[in-house]
Design a protein around this nucleic acid. Structure first.
Lengths: 150, 150
DNA sequence: CTATTTGCTGAATAATTATGCATGCATATG
DNA sequence: CATATGCATGCATAATTATTCAGCAAATAG
């Protein structure tokens, strides 16, 4: 039941400060996983856990922030996350509301984003319109933006 | 000499895949740092480096994304990072060039940033001016922005 | 100037982690 | 059924890393 154990490991390391694999193996054994340090070593490798040094100089296993997301956010993604407040649509138009002053920036980024479904954008101060070629793609575009809004 | 070495270590690990401390120590010795694995162990601790497992199952030392900054970036910081291209100053004015269309957004964020040294901002399309109360504070403001530019 | 403190380091070694090999189990294959 | 294949695992141990102890040099205090 490796999977069950992996979940347990993630819970344990968020709850306790685990400094060594033996320590973790012991906690797991208390929770009825009958395993050894060798297995923990493999689990840690598979989970992508990492032994980091905290501010007090102590070592501790953690799941690195960026291993869950896997990659850097692009500029477009960051700007969407930071400025978009609302997404709506009618027919072949997507209407995006942003914080004041941001709509032009966002439009400019989208124009260069390579999203082929778009014919173009128009932006005011806090509102932007995306004109979509085929209205079947409107939900796709909306979803793409909404997923990045956080 | 430790500081110089730390910089070198960061350069090395971004350039090569370093799997062990001995490996790193050898590279450093080739570069005229006369040190041993013990010192590398301490350096790694101080730098906050972390031995992570890549997708091929190989181990490798890296500087975790989030340990350098230690915290989430604010919206202001992200926007500066994403849009500012140039910072200059004369007298009590700081002139900030941005990517086209971003200056207003940036100005608006700065207006609400609580940077007390500023009297106010004026923004065009890709240029923003910060009016600083006391011209002694101009270098401070410039530096603050430049540090966030990446 | 001498003593003391502080920081950095290597050597040796303790502590920890990764792995080669063997085993058991489950499932596919002939 | 007999055999093969693929995991997951423990054991033993190799490989790697962290630390203890001692030395040394520079800075600081007396």
């Amino acid at each position: 039941m490796k999977n069950r154990r992996h979940k347990e490991i993630l819970e344990i390391i968020t709850q306790y400060d685990i400094g060594t694999q033996t320590e973790l193996a012991n906690l797991l054994r208390m929770r009825n996983f009958q395993i050894t340090q060798a297995t923990v070593s493999r689990d840690i490798k598979e989970l992508g856990l990492v032994k980091s040094t905290d501010s007090n100089g102590n070592h501790k296993y953690v799941l690195p922030m960026d291993s869950s997301s896997g990659r850097e956010l692009t500029r477009l993604e960051r700007v969407i996350m930071d400025t978009v407040t609302e997404v709506d649509s009618t027919e072949n138009l997507v209407l995006v509301k942003t914080l004041p002053g941001s709509a032009n920036l966002l439009a400019s980024l989208l124009d260069h984003s390579g999203w082929l479904e778009m014919m173009g954008t128009i932006a005011g101060d806090d509102t932007m319109l995306i004109i979509v070629k085929d209205k079947d793609n409107v939900p796709l575009i909306c979803e793409r933006i909404q997923k990045k809004m956080g």
